[in-house]
């Protein structure tokens, strides 16, 4: 973050500490979208749940901002930990398959304590970690299954295009995709048990 931006953020944080809600609003508007895209959505796996988590994160930030102490890397690392704690609570209460386990977030929160990385670095780290999770999960299933999921789910190609890429009929592709999702579910279940 540029020095000017950092100084402006420090000034906003001071104002927010003094009870200036508009200043706190500026901080949240600046960093909220980043929290959603890099921290909440990849870990929670659902837009609706991530939006609610962002709302909860904001409320917790407002309630606890007096506990924040300024660091030279800005306020984002602190906001990120608040968001991860919210995500952790949600993950603990969920049953469905997701790519992140509560233990993953616990480790990340622990690793974040005393971190001196700024928002840009943390965001790149979070996005890369999430993408790696997907790659790791897909690497544990049959390559043809992985390709079906990449084409249809990740790249959102049409059934027809995905079937052509796999050189099968559309009806056969439907079956392959169903089997692929079942195989992935099995892999995630194993990972969950191991965690």
């Amino acid at each position: 973050m540029a020095d000017d931006d950092l100084e402006e953020e420090r000034r906003l944080c001071e104002a927010a500490h003094g009870g200036d809600r508009a200043a706190l609003g500026k901080i949240l508007r600046k960093h909220g979208p980043r929290l959603y895209r890099a921290v909440l959505l990849p870990r929670l796996g659902s837009r609706a749940i991530a939006e609610e988590a962002l709302s909860t994160t904001y409320i917790k930030v407002v309630e606890r901002f007096d506990k924040f102490t300024w660091q030279n890397v800005g306020v984002y690392p602190w906001l990120r930990v608040v968001a991860m704690r919210v995500a952790l609570d949600i993950l603990r209460s969920r049953k469905r398959e997701v790519l992140f386990e509560p233990q993953d977030l616990e480790r990340e929160i622990d690793a974040s304590t005393g971190s001196d990385h700024d928002a840009e670095v943390l965001t790149r780290h979070d996005l890369a970690l999430a993408r790696k999770r997907v790659d790791d999960a897909l690497s544990n299933i049959n390559p043809r299954y992985a390709k079906a999921i990449r084409l249809r789910i990740l790249e959102e190609q049409s059934r027809e295009d995905a079937a052509a890429a796999l050189e099968v009929s559309v009806a056969t592709f439907d079956v392959v995709l169903h089997r692929a999702m079942a195989a992935l579910r099995k892999v995630l279940a194993v990972k969950g048990e191991a965690a």
């Binding site: 398959e97 790519l99 995630l188």
Partner: peptide, 19 residues
């Protein structure tokens, strides 16, 4: 559908869209 939720989780991790 359980797999629709799983598909969304995959997309959210691989290419999260902005809020």
């Amino acid at each position: 559908h359980p797999d629709v939720a799983l598909a969304e989780a995959l997309r959210s991790a691989a290419a999260p869209q902005p809020v």
